[in-house]
Design a binder for these strands. Structure first.
Length: 827
RNA sequence: GCCGAAGUGGCGGAACUGGCAGACGCACGGGACUUAAAAUCCCGCGGGAGUUAAAUCCCGUACCGGUUCGAUUCCGGUCUUCGGCACCA
């Protein structure tokens, strides 16, 4: 072994060898239990950033640990390679998106390999490769076949800067998730995936996901937004039509004093036609049209409405009720019509107050005198109470009345119980080039025709013009013009491509069968591996990617392609990497380049630091000095090993004889085995890599002290050193491999079995007992480990210190925790 | 407003099932080695009282209260920070 730790020589050497030996290949047929470890695959932006380093280091430790524990591990990587930046680069530099993307992939692959992550590179996939997107298109058609894809004209989210539509999930605070440009509404005919068909099961099955963070599940529940209510009908005075209203508070129906339609509600125009209300209503609607969703529906925005001159009839009370339109009612939730109950809804209360509408109480707050039931309320009462002013339902508690009213409406055919979701169908069309083309053809005779499977993939053409604000695919003559697959007549292709989240919704399945040319994946390949045992990634995908992937898995299971109905058994959402207290970002100028860190300190140091500085799910504060500290730690191990090797050169370490050790030898061995116990638990059960590393640091510190002792036993030292290396191997794979070889081992350290602990080494002859008086520590004593409680108590009473604290007092109780402490309760 | 997470030294963090608060690392201080510095190795390092030095004692895990022999840990309440959702009828 060299005297100096030279990571720049060691790391590339082993990386090359591991790659050549295909050291991390997942076995296709194996007797071993399987373990599927997965990090969210990266978008090939061109450079690895520090968040990637964290993500992949975490998964690599898990993968390496599981391999050493005897699992057949699948640990793949690939590229989420479609997307807008490639196209923007194309506009800017006049290079084709494919070229830009593949160049970026090559660079990031080089960077990834310099980190020494144990990927099975033979399974690498890129979503922009025709061999991959062929199957994305195939899956689209499968969903189409099963009636889960439809085309619909709707007011959709439009990002003017990206020149494309967006899914609801991609609109954050009214702005484009990618570029933060405010999103506007546009009426367009677009392709949708019917994720709402799966709303219920996507919600229910969250309860099965015990290995997911509560936070992510809560976010998904929130997003899906299930509510139980009643849909009822209000007749319109003087007309045949009825207005459907959805409410979760059917118990308050006797308190309705107005009804509000969304301005876009189809009945509005008809109702005001040829009346004096037509003009103002049209003006109001025009005003609403110009506003995006946030400007219209944020809680900050004042409620604004307009009476439209018509009345409807309350189905239960028969009362005549004015019809309004208002900004806060959305056309695409529920029925687009809301009953206004000002007394028992805060929003309605504000609206009614503003427009001087009556606010009659129908639920009496508990404790309030019934005589006050017609007095005005100071604020909306939204809690439980007793029914008043509600005809036959008076006197019931409102909970019971809820069901009785629902029953009554159902019996009379005036309404029915209904479940509503906040979740909307997934808009997957994008007016962009760099994505998987939607495999559809429009024929004058046959209408909309799916591209037959044999004609897949629909390749992206190269004769396109990239210009800002325009879908490049429409400029490709060769692409647009085609023939109808059914009748052979001239036809044109769909020029929209798919949302890239389509591509990333099934990539974890493709890894199990990455080169299959007959199908996206075979049962034989996918069934043994799925589902993913441990998935790790950023929480920013809590809804988008994770919800879509769950949807895909469930649908593909229903189509018969999968046996599992959830893709990710366990999920870990890692925290952000911060510097100076805020997230690293180019705009803040607080970015650290992983490549630079690896060049200066080596991959092992970078990995150790990022795993040591904080537990994985928490945000991590970058510290240059912290990195140096980790570099020192690795150097410390190197010197320890180098020194050990030098002193023992030519000599053979005698075999370890645990029975003949002195006290210090026993203590050293005990610490070695305690460390095995701690690291195994921290890595395997808790993912607390920071404490695992600190345990190894402690063992290193202890060995430094032990080896200097004149009576130090070489076999004990060797055992400690070798365990330091093996335990550290998943964290710092290069240095441990190099030292391991230097110590004369022929086989790779990564092929070693994970150490099991020697229980006998943990036993102690003497233990420390903490003595408390009234819960305060007053003394510690050394006693034989197997001392009896009675004997211990006897000894304690003779101690001067204890005597002092109990003197003149009565010992009323003695609490003994075996092997740990004794607490004397005195008075 | 609703939901979720967190609050511990100068800093990052530890304390696993209620049992020695502050492991480990950083920063800082002292010593050894060196002509010297760096590197390295060893020791110290929450606050206060006390003392030549120590022993020792008191306080201390956001705040207030409770349960308990004993609470960073459990319960109730308050405050602060971060994240998500937010006129969803």
């Amino acid at each position: 072994m060299q005297e100096k730790y030279s990571f720049s020589e060691i790391e590339p050497k082993w990386q090359k060898r591991w790659l050549e030996e295909k050291a991390w290949r997942a076995e296709e047929h194996s007797e071993k239990p399987k373990f599927y470890a997965l990090a969210m695959f990266p978008y090939p932006s061109g450079n690895l950033h520090i968040g990637h380093v964290r993500n992949y280091s975490i998964v690599d430790v898990i993968a390496r640990f599981k391999r050493m524990q005897g699992y057949n591990v699948l640990h793949p990587i690939g590229w989420d390679a479609f997307g807008l930046p490639a196209e923007n680069a194309a506009i800017k530099n006049q290079t084709p998106p494919a070229e830009w993307t593949w160049k970026n992939i090559a660079n990031m692959k080089r960077q990834l390999q310099s980190m020494g992550i144990s990927y099975d590179w033979e399974r690498e996939v890129a979503t922009c490769h025709p061999g991959y997107y062929k199957w994305t298109q195939w899956i689209f058609l499968e969903f189409y076949k099963h009636g889960l894809v439809y085309k619909k004209k709707a007011a959709v989210n439009w990002c003017p800067s990206c020149a494309t539509v967006l899914a609801n999930e991609q609109v954050v605070d009214g702005a484009c998730e990618r570029c933060e440009t405010p999103v506007t509404k546009k009426d367009l005919e677009q392709w949708f995936f019917k994720i709402t068909d799966y709303a219920d099961v996507l919600l229910d099955d969250l309860n099965k996901l015990e290995g997911w963070p509560e936070k992510v599940k809560a976010m998904q529940r929130n997003w899906i937004g299930r509510s139980e209510g009643v849909e009822t009908e209000f007749g319109i005075e003087g007309r045949e039509e009825r207005i459907k209203v959805y409410t979760t508070r059917i118990d308050t129906i006797f308190g309705v004093t107005y009804l509000v339609l969304a301005p876009e509600h189809p009945l509005v125009q008809e109702l005001v036609a040829n009346s004096k209300f037509e003009q103002p209503v049209m003006a109001f609607m025009d005003k609403m049209k110009g506003l995006n969703e946030i400007a219209r529906t944020s809680t900050e925005v004042e409620k604004e409405g307009l009476f439209i001159g018509k009345y409807c009839i309350n189905p239960l009370s028969g009362k005549r009720i004015p019809i309004w339109i208002a900004n806060y009612v959305l056309v695409d939730y529920g029925t687009g019509a809301v009953m206004g109950v000002p007394a028992h809804d805060e929003r309605d209360f504000a609206f009614a107050t503003k427009y001087n509408l009556p606010i009659p109480m129908v639920i009496l707050p508990p404790g309030m005198d019934a005589a006050a039931k017609d007095k005005p309320l100071a604020a909306a009462f939204t809690e439980e109470g007793t029914m008043v002013n509600s005809g036959e339902f008076d006197g019931l508690d409102n909970d019971t009345a809820w069901d009785q009213i629902a029953d009554a409406l159902e019996k009379r055919g005036l309404g029915e119980r209904k479940v509503n979701f906040r979740l909307r169908d997934w808009l997957i069309s994008r007016q962009r080039y760099w994505g998987a083309a939607i495999p559809m053809v429009y024929c004058e005779h046959c209408g909309t025709v799916p591209v037959p499977e044999k004609d897949l993939p629909v390749l992206l053409p190269e004769d396109v013009v990239f210009k800002a604000g325009e879908n490049p695919l429409t400029t490709s003559e060769s692409f647009v013009h085609t023939t109808c697959p059914t009748c052979g007549a001239p036809a044109h292709r769909e020029t929209d491509t798919m949302d890239t989240f389509m591509c990333s919704s099934w990539y974890y399945l493709r890894y199990t069968d990455p080169r299959n040319e007959e199908e996206p994946f075979s049962h034989e390949a996918v069934d043994p591996w799925m589902n993913v045992d441990q998935y790790v990634g950023g929480v920013e995908h809590a809804i988008l990617h994770l919800l879509y992937s769950r949807f895909f898995t469930k649908a593909l299971r229903d189509f018969g392609f999968l046996k599992v109905d959830e893709p990710f058994q366990n999920l870990l959402t890692q925290g952000m990497v911060c510097m100076d207290g805020s997230k690293m970002s180019k705009s803040k100028g607080n970015v650290v380049s992983p490549e630079e860190i690896i060049n200066r300190f080596g991959a092992d140091t970078a990995r150790i630091f990022i795993l040591f500085a904080a537990p994985p799910e928490r945000d991590l504060e970058w510290s240059e000095q912290g990195v140096e500290g980790c570099y020192r730690f690795l150097n410390r191990i190197w010197r320890l090993a180098a020194q050990y090797e030098a002193t023992l050169k030519g000599k053979k370490t005698p075999p370890l004889d645990p029975g003949s050790l002195d006290t210090e030898g026993k203590a050293m061995r005990r610490q070695t085995h305690l460390t095995i116990q701690r690291v195994t638990n921290d890595v395997g059960q808790r993912f607390n890599f920071n404490t695992a590393i600190s345990a190894i640091m402690e063992l290193v510190n202890a060995l430094y002290l032990y080896k200097e002792k004149p009576e130090a036993n070489p076999a004990v030292a060797k055992e400690a050193l070798e365990h330091i290396l093996v335990l550290l191997a998943p964290f710092a794979p290069h240095i441990t491999e190099e030292i391991w070889a230097g110590l004369g081992h022929a086989q790779s350290i990564h092929a070693q079995e994970w150490p099991s602990l020697d229980e006998a080494a943990l036993t102690q002859d003497e233990i420390t007992i903490v003595l408390q008086v009234n819960g305060k520590v007053r003394e510690r004593i050394q006693v034989p480990a197997e001392i009896s409680a009675a004997e211990l108590e006897k000894q304690i009473r003779t101690l001067p210190k204890i005597h002092e604290w109990t003197q003149g007092k009565e010992i009323i109780k003695v609490v003994t925790v075996p092997g740990k402490l004794v607490n004397l309760v005195v008075r």
